[in-house]
Structure formats: structure tokens, C-alpha cells
Simulated scan of single mutants.
Amino acid sequence: MAMLKKERAAIVLERLNTLYPDPPIPLDHTDEFTLLVAVLLSAQCTDKKVNEITPELFSVAGTPSKMRELGEEGILEIIRPLGLSKQKAKALAKLSGMLIDLHKGQVPSTFEELEALPGVGHKTASVVMSQAFGFPAFPVDTHIHRLAQRWGLSSGKSVVQTERDLKSLFPESSWNKLHLQIIFYGREFCTARGCDGRVCELCRELYPNRRKPVTWIKP
């Protein structure tokens, strides 16, 4: 008899708490502003690549005022190795000015204000809200979107649906840590190419009788 979705969710939570009891934030940062910048830069880039670039950027532009002073061209010169660098440089220059003009140089702590900033979508805002301010949020990146489908926790029709489904399955108190735990598991064991829903230990535990690969619906 197949497990219920709630039963699968309980197993996922238990196994990931054992594997990653205290998952670190993968993007290097020192405060709310540097976290916001790092998350914005991580779009279509690996965290590893972002962490290679940000030390130089933060050494000269670690505050909104210094970032605005550096300007779009100066920012671009440093972040050029990253994907979408021109768009990101433009967004960071405008974002820094808005933080100074509208928020007294501080990163705002509401979804509405964060998502009004250039280059900041719901996922970026969710990361900042959860990791900088401790607000319960469930940012959905490609790893989480993929694994939610493989583990039968969401239909995967959209990242919006995946976020809604995961929030309904897991206790709110677990969200901020769990989204990191799923990312680490997805990188280490249940990768896009290394597991098709039948390979990694957790996939096999949740679906011991699965015979066909899971078709991943990309966001």
C-alpha cells in the first residue's frame, strides 16, 4: 500500500534532520545587505561561484552607500564572470539607491518592500526573510522544486504550487531550516542527473516499488 503524502513528508523531515541537523547558509555574507546582494547574484549561478566573486565586491561595496557610489559599471567590472551580470549590476545599483532613499540604508523586513526592489523576486525575498530576519518562509529553488516532485510532495506545476504544497505539509517551525536541508540533499545525493527518482536512498525509501524514472517538470 502506497504511503500517504503526509507520511512521506514525515520521513523526509526525520531523515534530513538526521543528515543535516544544523545546515549552514551556503552564501557567504556578514549582514542583511550582503545576504540580499549574494542571493540576487545567485540567480542562474552556483553559490560556489557567487562566493568566489563577493569578497572583492564586498571589500569595496559592502554597504548600500558604497554600492551606489561604485555604480553600475564598477559593479559590472567585478561581477562580470557571473551569469546575467549586466542585469544584476543595473539592479544592484538601483537597489542600493532605493535602500538609501526609501529605507534609510537598511534592508526592509517585509515581503512587499523587498519585492519592490529591482532584481528581487519572491524567492530572493523569501531567502532574506527567512535567513536574515527569521520569518517563516519556504524559498523554492530548482533543487527543492525537483525533489518535491520526486518525493511526491507536489505536482510541480509551478514553483508557486510547490511552495504552497510544502508549506501545507511541513510545520511552519521547520521551514527555514528545511529548505536548506533539501538543497543540501539535492546537491549531494539527489542531483538532476545522478538520481531519477529511483537511485538515492530517500527516493527508494519513499517509493520502494517505483520502476519508472520521474519526469522532472522544470520551473
Rank of each mutant, 00 (worst) to 15 (best):
3 M>L: 07
4 L>Q: 10
4 L>F: 10
8 R>Y: 06
8 R>L: 06
17 N>G: 14
19 L>S: 07
25 I>C: 14
37 V>R: 03
39 V>D: 04
40 L>K: 06
45 C>R: 00
49 K>A: 13
62 G>V: 00
74 G>V: 05
76 L>Q: 12
76 L>T: 13
78 I>P: 01
78 I>V: 10
81 P>V: 12
83 G>E: 07
86 K>H: 12
87 Q>R: 14
88 K>Q: 00
94 K>L: 06
103 H>T: 11
106 Q>L: 10
107 V>G: 09
108 P>V: 15
116 A>P: 02
117 L>P: 08
118 P>M: 13
119 G>N: 02
130 S>P: 11
131 Q>G: 03
135 F>N: 11
137 A>L: 10
137 A>Q: 13
139 P>T: 10
141 D>L: 11
142 T>Q: 11
143 H>G: 04
156 G>F: 05
160 V>K: 15
160 V>C: 09
160 V>G: 04
161 Q>W: 09
167 K>S: 02
168 S>L: 07
169 L>N: 09
169 L>R: 10
169 L>M: 05
170 F>M: 09
176 N>H: 05
177 K>W: 10
177 K>Q: 15
181 Q>W: 08
186 G>W: 01
191 T>I: 07
197 G>A: 02
200 C>N: 09
200 C>F: 14
201 E>K: 12
210 R>E: 12
213 P>F: 13
214 V>I: 05
214 V>T: 00
214 V>G: 04
219 P>H: 11
